[in-house]
Structures are given as structure tokens and as C-alpha cells.
């Protein structure tokens, strides 16, 4: 009998690719939890629980990571989520008055 080895991982998912990521999670029956929402950065922190022995789950996670890293590439972000070509990351436009 195949042993279940569950693995919990957290992913920072930009809202722009959220629907694609959710599609991956639902289609592959991967349980997940939204741990947090960063409205300022427009990202969600999602925790997935996968079976490490299932190839489908491995591929799904690989797929998810590829989408997130591709998006980061177009955002010009490094893996850790920091801008690599930025002077100021803090934006506070709402405070500007007319």
C-alpha cells in the first residue's frame, strides 16, 4: 500500500495569476489555505498540502512555481520578492492631496 507523505508549502501568489494557480490546485485536488492577503503588493500567501509521492502533485507544484516565477520576471523581482532595480519600494499614493 502506498504511504502518504504530505508536504506543506507556502507560496506568495500575485493576484494576476491567481485564477491560473487556483485552476491548478482545484484540478489536481490539492488542499490549500489562504494564510494572508497583502493588498499593497496585490499578493496572497497560500499554503498547499501535497502528497510528495504523487507525480501529479509534484508537477502541479512545479507548474505553480513556474507561473509565479514568470510573473516575477515581468515584475522585475528577485525570488525573494524584492525589486532588483528600484530606489523606493514603498508607495503611498493615497496620501497625496490635490
Amino acid at each position: 500500500m502506498q504511504q502518504n507523505v504530505t508536504q506543506a508549502k507556502s507560496h506568495t501568489v500575485p493576484v494576476d495569476v491567481l485564477m491560473d494557480v487556483l485552476g491548478i490546485l482545484f484540478n489536481n485536488d490539492i488542499p490549500f489555505l489562504v494564510d494572508g492577503i497583502n493588498e499593497h503588493e496585490n499578493t496572497l500567501l497560500i499554503r498547499t498540502t501535497t502528497n510528495a509521492k504523487l507525480t501529479r502533485h509534484k508537477k502541479a507544484l512545479e507548474n505553480l512555481k513556474t507561473l509565479v516565477s514568470d510573473y516575477s520576471y515581468y515584475r522585475r523581482e528577485s525570488e525573494s520578492g524584492n525589486f532588483h532595480n528600484v530606489e523606493t519600494t514603498d508607495r503611498d499614493y493615497e496620501d497625496d492631496d490635490e
Binding site: R56, D70, Y74
Partner: peptide
């Protein structure tokens, strides 16, 4: 496994 690509990307 059906690889999903982001239409936006």
C-alpha cells in the same frame, strides 16, 4: 498532467 499556462503571461 495537463500543464497550465497563464494566458496573461
Amino acid at each position: 498532467y495537463e500543464w497550465v499556462r497563464s494566458e496573461l503571461l
